[in-house]
């Protein structure tokens, strides 16, 4: 049982990686939000398993906070934002998904190599997954770069935060509770502010395409 649980941490890590790749290749905004919810749920599950295996009960609390903030609150907020902006069924034109995917593979290899020496220093139970957490981080970052619309960019940012959280759990069995609480509220506040920003961008340009922001004034 114990063995299966420690293997399931690897499984959850792999699922996180799949979800990030799915996010990168997904055109529909609604699906990206669904994927983000799945990512949060996977994170909760893996945190609970790590907490159970290491006997560190503060991880249960951080899992609960993750559940409330990232699986329930933020997706609900995002759904309301896309409803209000009327972009629920929007399809983003992504160019060249295969190329993005290939760059993604290179990023994964890079992250795995980067994480190997660090993981050797760590004593945590999930140290093998540090490479995956780093890869998820870099991929979310790439998602922020490659997307043109505001909502997927915000989700890329949130998924980056998720990967950092997972990396912390993998490398050091979780951060101190106070830090985690702080980050959770930061993210929540960030979402609210970004939501306001999205409305403002929309007001100004009649579109959520952030390329319009590059122009300084009307021609």
């Amino acid at each position: 049982m114990h063995l299966l649980l420690s293997q399931s941490i690897n499984l959850f890590a792999a699922m996180l990686l799949i979800v990030v790749f799915a996010m990168i290749s997904q055109r529909r905004i609604l699906r990206v939000i669904h994927l983000f919810t799945v990512q949060g749920a996977t994170l909760v599950a893996s945190t609970i398993v790590v907490g159970y295996l290491t006997g560190q009960h503060h991880l249960y609390y951080s899992a609960a906070v993750t559940l409330i903030v990232k699986v329930i609150l933020i997706p609900v907020l995002l759904h309301r934002v896309i409803d209000r902006l009327n972009v629920r069924w929007d399809v983003e034109t992504l160019i060249n998904i295969p190329t993005t995917m290939l760059i993604g593979i290179v990023l994964v290899v890079f992250a795995f190599n980067l994480a190997l020496p660090i993981a050797k220093l760590s004593l945590s139970i999930a140290r093998g997954t540090l490479g995956i957490a780093l890869a998820c981080f870099l991929l979310s970052f790439m998602m922020m770069i490659s997307r043109a619309k505001a909502v997927p960019q915000v989700i890329g940012f949130l998924s980056m935060e998720n990967s950092l959280f997972f990396a912390a759990a993998a490398a050091t069995n979780g951060m101190p509770m106070i830090v985690e609480l702080g980050i959770a509220f930061d993210v929540l506040a960030g979402i609210l502010i970004l939501g306001v920003f999205m409305f403002q961008i929309r007001e100004q340009f009649d579109s959520l395409d952030i390329r319009h922001l590059e122009k300084l004034k009307e021609d």
Binding site: Q7, N10, A13, A14, L17, I18, F21, S25, I97, P98, M101, L102, G104, I105, V108, V109, F112, A115, L116, G128, T129, G131, I132
Partner: peptide, 19 residues
Amino acid sequence: ATAFLLAVIALLVHVLLGA
């Protein structure tokens, strides 16, 4: 390409996690 990518990641994950 997605299928190929998933298969390559499977190889990488095996190398990294040994599982």
